[in-house]
C-alpha cells in the first residue's frame, strides 16, 4: 500500500502562522462576542497560529497582554466592548509595550474609530463579516 511518504511533497507548504523556525505566532484575541472569538480563532489556528489567550473586554485584554508579555506576538482587538473599548485598550497596551502589534477588528461603519486607532498605533484593521483570506492577509502584513 502506498503511503503519504511515497509521494513527492510538492504540495506541502509551511503554514502561514509559523515563523522561519517552525514556531507558531502567538495571538491574543480580544472581543466581547463569543462568535467572533471563535471565528478568528478557527481561521488563525487552521493556519498554524497559536491562540495564547482570549479576553471579553478591553480591560481584560490589557491585563492578559501584560500577563502574557513577551510571549505574545500580536493582538486582534474589537472596537466596541464593555468596561473598556478597544481604542483605550490599544492605547494602554502601547503605553506598556510600544512595539505591540495590535490589529483592530471592526464592523463596517466605524471608519472614524478605525482611523483613530491607526493614528494611535494600531498596525492594521479587519472589517467584519470576517473573510478568511482577508484576515490572514492583514495579520501577515502586520506581523512580518
Amino acid at each position: 500500500m502506498k503511503t503519504k511518504m511515497d509521494f513527492p511533497s510538492i504540495n506541502e507548504r509551511k503554514p502561514e502562522g509559523q515563523g522561519a523556525g517552525g514556531e507558531a505566532y502567538k495571538v491574543l484575541i480580544v472581543d466581547d462576542s463569543m462568535f467572533v472569538k471563535k471565528q478568528i480563532s478557527q481561521i488563525l489556528t487552521s493556519e498554524g497560529f497559536e491562540v495564547v489567550g482570549t479576553a471579553g473586554d478591553g480591560l481584560e485584554g490589557l491585563e492578559k497582554y501584560k500577563e502574557l508579555y513577551p510571549n505574545v506576538d500580536f493582538v486582534t482587538m474589537d472596537i466596541t466592548m464593555p468596561k473598556m473599548d478597544g481604542i483605550s485598550s490599544l492605547e494602554k497596551i502601547l503605553e506598556f509595550d510600544k512595539d505591540a502589534k495590535v490589529i483592530m477588528v471592526s464592523a463596517l461603519g466605524k471608519q472614524d474609530l478605525v482611523k483613530k486607532a491607526l493614528m494611535i498605533g494600531a498596525k492594521n484593521y479587519i472589517v467584519k463579516p470576517l473573510d478568511r483570506v482577508k484576515v490572514l492577509e492583514r495579520v501577515l502584513q502586520s506581523i512580518k
Partner: peptide, 15 residues
C-alpha cells in the same frame, strides 16, 4: 452570540 453579531454587523453598516 451569532445572531447578536449578525444584528451588530447590519446595524453598524446601516447607521
Amino acid at each position: 452570540a451569532t445572531i447578536t453579531e449578525l444584528a451588530n454587523m447590519i446595524t453598524a453598516q446601516a447607521v
